[in-house]
């Protein structure tokens, strides 16, 4: 009898322990950002796009998987460390830095002319048929129109500009095209997403689909959404692009990574971004 009670107690304790892990699910919270132009509501939770209906019902911004203090930093632009880089990019935008003194502003006027771009990229350019990220568009201008050497894909100048351009679409709904000309790139990205790379034999899906909400040591596994990119990453004290994060993830599977701007990572970014169709662009988010 006593032994039976002891076993029951153990079972209850185990039950509680298991219930405890359920709290590791995305934090129930909502994001309103204090900006210079008033309060902006951000969609951080919504129904999964149709192409994901077999695997999940709801998509969550990575914001839901971070700690209270990290989430708080994104509620007010005054607290968001990423805004420093946006300001720096505004100087770059207006600066006569081309070979013949061209500036971004000279052709495009204010950065608000970039409104909407981040929400639909990566995309296939209608005129060239090439898969284009925001960084690709920037470099097209830098080389063809300004007569400069291409900016490094993960260099400060590029990442600042990416931050500024992304901010112009903040609050807009991610709407990545996956059909038509985008379809072959989307399929290629999906293939990579489900491939188990490296000596650890892990795919994106192993962590971010199968085990979302759970923990690998202290790491709370998100859905790996990229609507918040570029992010200000506290761990790196700087701006990080989606493809830089891909490098880190693939490296951590003990694999040979692909390079930022490789055909593989561009396709993967298109595919992963499309898994976030319906979430808001967050401009520059804050993660740890």
């Amino acid at each position: 009898m006593q032994r039976h009670v002891a076993r029951l107690a153990t079972t209850l304790a185990l039950g509680l322990a298991l219930t405890g892990t359920a709290f590791a699910d995305p934090v129930d919270d909502s994001l309103s950002i204090e900006t210079d132009d008033g309060v902006l509501e951000i969609v951080t939770t919504t129904a999964a796009p149709a192409h994901l209906s077999d695997v999940m019902d709801t998509i969550y911004s990575g914001w839901h998987f971070r700690e209270d203090e990290t989430r708080a930093l994104q509620r007010d632009d005054f607290d968001n460390p990423g805004m420093v880089y946006v300001d720096r990019a505004l100087d770059s935008w207006n600066k006569a830095q081309g070979a013949k003194g061209e500036s971004c502003a000279g052709c495009h006027e204010g950065p608000e002319s970039m409104k909407g771009l981040r929400a639909v990229t990566p995309r296939v350019d209608a005129t060239t048929g090439a898969l284009m990220t925001v960084e690709n568009y920037v470099n097209e201008c830098v080389t063809d129109r300004m007569g400069l050497e291409a900016w490094g894909m993960t260099g400060d100048k590029m990442k600042d500009m990416l931050a500024l351009i992304s901010m112009q679409s903040r609050g807009e709904v991610v709407n990545i095209a996956i059909d038509g000309a985008a379809a072959p790139f989307w399929e290629a990205g999906k293939e990579i997403y489900y491939t188990r790379f490296g000596q650890l034999e892990m795919s994106c899906a192993n962590c971010h689909e199968d085990n979302q909400g759970r923990y690998i040591r202290a790491d709370h596994l998100s859905q790996g959404q990229v609507n918040g990119f570029p992010v200000y990453r506290l761990k790196d004290a700087g701006i990080l692009t989606a493809q830089q994060r891909f490098v880190g993830c693939v490296r951590d599977t003990r694999a040979e990574t692909f390079k930022p701007d490789s055909a593989e990572f561009k396709a993967l970014e298109l595919y992963v971004a499309s898994r976030g169709n319906g979430l808001s662009v967050e401009g520059v988010s804050v993660r740890h």
Partner: peptide, 17 residues
């Protein structure tokens, strides 16, 4: 296990072995 991987790297370097 030492064989049969897709793009194995040299430990956590991100580089080919």
């Amino acid at each position: 296990k030492t064989e049969g991987f897709t793009r194995p790297g040299a430990a956590y370097s991100g580089k080919a072995p």
